[in-house]
Amino acid sequence: MIAEAALILIALSVAVCVIRLAIGPTLPDRVVALDLAVTLCVGAIALLCLKAGRPTMLVVGIVLALIMFLGTAAFAQYIERRARR
């Protein structure tokens, strides 16, 4: 029951992130929105594991959380390089 409620809240948060991703006036806004959406996805994966009662997918969440950092760092590098020109 609590897991379902949390999943609904996470879905709403992802929807808000997608809105920011679509209208975000600047590129950094969009990058932060994407970063937050992936973090919420990790939470959703953990909740789905809880609901299914099996820890098999938890590794996916852990790897996603570690890789997400790479995407944000690469975007930051791209923005920095673009600003220099």
Partner: peptide
Amino acid sequence: AARFLLPLLLVFSVVLLLQGHNEP
């Protein structure tokens, strides 16, 4: 962060490789 994350990610890649036959 990169100096910490590199060994961590490598360990997880080996975990994924070894559990791959029966699990994700």
